[in-house]
Amino acid sequence: MASKSSSSIKNEDTYDALRDKGYSKEKSARIANAQANDSQSPSVKGGKASPYESWTKEELYERAQELEIDGRSRMSKSELIEALRG
């Protein structure tokens, strides 16, 4: 993904707000660009899943496995959360 200063970010204010909330650069850019497009109306938040902190380590590991996150077997619960939020 291009850097923030690139012209690929269509809504800088939304991008900055999402980055301040801890969203990844890629996700922030996708949401900001989609909100800048009149034919799309994305929400800032995703589905209604519970926060990762309430998941068990096993559940986090299974999700990391689905997403093919490297090194997941050596990660602690907090490291799995960080990797999943990527």
Rank of each mutant, 00 (worst) to 15 (best):
A2M: 15
S3H: 12
K4S: 08
K4W: 12
S5Q: 10
S5W: 02
S7C: 03
S7N: 09
S8V: 13
S8R: 12
S8E: 12
K10N: 12
D13P: 00
D13S: 12
T14P: 09
T14D: 10
D16S: 04
A17S: 05
D20F: 07
D20T: 12
G22C: 08
Y23K: 05
Y23L: 11
K25A: 09
E26R: 12
A29T: 14
R30M: 15
R30V: 15
I31A: 07
A32K: 03
A32Q: 02
N33L: 05
N33K: 04
A34R: 05
A36E: 14
N37A: 15
S39V: 07
S41K: 15
P42A: 09
S43H: 10
S43Q: 13
V44P: 00
V44M: 04
G47S: 13
K48D: 11
A49N: 15
A49W: 00
A49Y: 04
S50I: 07
S50N: 10
P51A: 12
P51M: 05
K57E: 11
L60C: 02
L60H: 05
R63K: 14
A64Y: 01
Q65N: 11
Q65P: 04
E66H: 12
E66I: 10
L67H: 06
E68M: 08
D70Y: 11
G71C: 08
S73G: 08
R74D: 09
R74C: 00
S76L: 05
S76R: 01
K77P: 05
K77G: 07
E79H: 02
I81D: 06
I81E: 08
E82H: 08
G86N: 15
G86D: 15
